[in-house]
Simulated scan of single mutants.
Amino acid sequence: MSAREFVVLGTASQVPTRHRNHNGYLLRWDGEGILFDPGEGTQRQMLLAGVAAHDLTRICVTHFHGDHSLGLAGVIQRINLDRVPHPIAAHYPASGRHFFERLRYATAYRETVALREEPVSGDGGLIADTPAFTLEARRLSHPVESYGYRLVEPDGHRMLPERLAAYGVRGPAVGRLQREGALATEEHGTVTLDQVSEARPGQRFAFIMDTRLCEGVEALAEGCDLLVIESTFLDEDVRLAEDHGHLTAGQAARVAAAAGVRHLVLTHFSQRYGDPDVFARQARAAGFEGELTVAHDLLRVPVPKRLP
């Protein structure tokens, strides 16, 4: 199993269908498990996808329409029932705090897990800063307050064994060189990190749900290795998309192409459409040439391998 993968739990907008559950998505990122927009039925979809409550470390809600949040009650009770041993952070629009509280305490249960509520407000910005990545939120354009999320891994270095050997750096000295950036040696003097490594660009992921085109969409998508974005409507229904605060397949694809996205995942489809292949055709017609996936329930999408 990939240490970095995106697990699709549900892909329907507004109402579930026979083939599509309400929204629900999990990003596995090394030791983190970030659950996005748990709609109704997410707890069962987690079971079908092999996702355990113990896998979760964060919950990110873009907005408080039911198809993106009604599953919170079940998921929160499940993490307490299973006695998840670590704290879990919950990010959501601050204007919807009363909705989150209602869902969190929808029925009686015993709280056993430290669930930290960390609401997002204003234009968003940095909401988590860890040694492994930063997590940002950006305001989107929807009839209710909505945010997209972006994970950015810091740039680093890839150690080159042949250069390490040439400079006589081995064992614990390799780790010390990585930490300190330079190492004093008897034979070669000061050896710097740049002499024995090459740049390793950090990976980037973004999750964009219900929104019209806006600055937040462009900022979130910029340079992503993996972009998950709603495409509720087909291009011929662009006026409906604008009226209801959504994107079309072509709009989402043009954003991804302009942002240099490597792998584009389209999701959140209106129940009015029966053929998912049409979304792919419209995305290609809009000029997106990277890897393209039209999501379906229980799909697993690996984060693309690093660029050299």
Rank of each mutant, 00 (worst) to 15 (best):
Met1Asp: 15
Ala3Val: 14
Arg4Trp: 02
Val7Ala: 08
Leu9Trp: 02
Gly10Lys: 06
Ser13Thr: 12
Ser13Ile: 00
Gln14Trp: 13
Thr17Lys: 04
Thr17Tyr: 05
Arg20His: 02
Asn21Ser: 11
His22Thr: 10
Tyr25Pro: 01
Leu26Gly: 09
Arg28Trp: 03
Trp29Lys: 11
Phe36Met: 04
Asp37Asn: 08
Gly39Ile: 08
Arg44Cys: 01
Leu47Trp: 15
Leu47Met: 12
Leu47Ile: 14
Leu48Asn: 14
Ala52Asp: 10
His54Trp: 14
Leu56His: 08
Thr57Asn: 06
Thr57Ile: 02
Thr57Ser: 06
Arg58Lys: 13
Ile59Pro: 08
Val61Thr: 02
Thr62Asp: 12
Thr62Pro: 13
Gly66His: 07
Ser69Leu: 13
Leu70Ala: 14
Leu70Arg: 12
Gly71Asn: 00
Gly71Phe: 08
Gly74Lys: 07
Ile79Trp: 01
Asn80Gln: 04
Asn80Arg: 10
Leu81Tyr: 10
Asp82Pro: 01
Val84Arg: 11
His86Ile: 01
Pro87Val: 02
Ile88Asn: 02
Ala89Asp: 14
Ala94Trp: 09
Gly96Ala: 06
His98Glu: 14
Phe99Met: 14
Leu103Pro: 03
Arg104Ser: 14
Tyr109Ala: 04
Gly122Trp: 07
Gly124Cys: 07
Leu126Ser: 06
Ile127Asn: 09
Ala128Val: 09
Thr130Gln: 15
Thr130Trp: 14
Ala132Thr: 09
Leu135Val: 01
Leu135Arg: 07
Leu135Asp: 08
Glu136Thr: 15
Ala137Met: 00
Arg138Ser: 12
Glu145Ser: 02
Tyr147Pro: 12
Leu151Ile: 05
Glu153Gly: 02
Glu153Pro: 00
Pro154Glu: 04
Asp155Tyr: 05
Gly156Glu: 10
His157Arg: 15
Ala165Asn: 14
Tyr167Gly: 02
Pro172Tyr: 05
Pro172Cys: 08
Ala173Asp: 12
Gln178Cys: 10
Gly181Trp: 06
Glu186Gly: 05
Glu186Thr: 09
Val191Asn: 04
Thr192Tyr: 09
Leu193Tyr: 05
Glu198His: 07
Arg200Met: 11
Arg200His: 12
Pro201Met: 00
Gly202Asn: 04
Gly202Thr: 06
Phe207Thr: 05
Met209Pro: 11
Asp210Gly: 13
Cys214Ile: 07
Cys214Leu: 00
Gly216Ile: 09
Glu218Lys: 13
Leu220Tyr: 03
Leu220Ala: 00
Ala221Gln: 03
Leu227Met: 03
Ile229Glu: 09
Ile229Asp: 10
Glu230Lys: 13
Ser231Phe: 03
Thr232Asn: 01
Leu234Cys: 07
Leu234Trp: 10
Asp235Lys: 11
Glu236Gln: 14
Glu242Ile: 09
His244Cys: 11
Leu247Met: 09
Ala249Ile: 02
Gln251Glu: 15
Ala252Gln: 03
Val255Arg: 09
Ala256His: 00
Ala257Gly: 00
Val261Asp: 10
Arg262Gly: 13
Thr267Gly: 10
Thr267Phe: 11
Thr267Gln: 06
Phe269Val: 03
Arg272Gly: 01
Arg272Cys: 01
Tyr273Ser: 02
Tyr273Phe: 06
Pro276His: 08
Asp277Ile: 09
Phe279Lys: 03
Gln282Leu: 01
Ala285Phe: 04
Ala286Thr: 05
Gly287Ser: 03
Gly290Tyr: 06
Glu291Lys: 11
Val294Pro: 07
Leu298Phe: 03
Leu298Lys: 12
Val301Lys: 01
Val301Trp: 03
Pro302Asp: 00
Lys305Trp: 12
Arg306Asp: 13
Arg306His: 08
Leu307Pro: 12
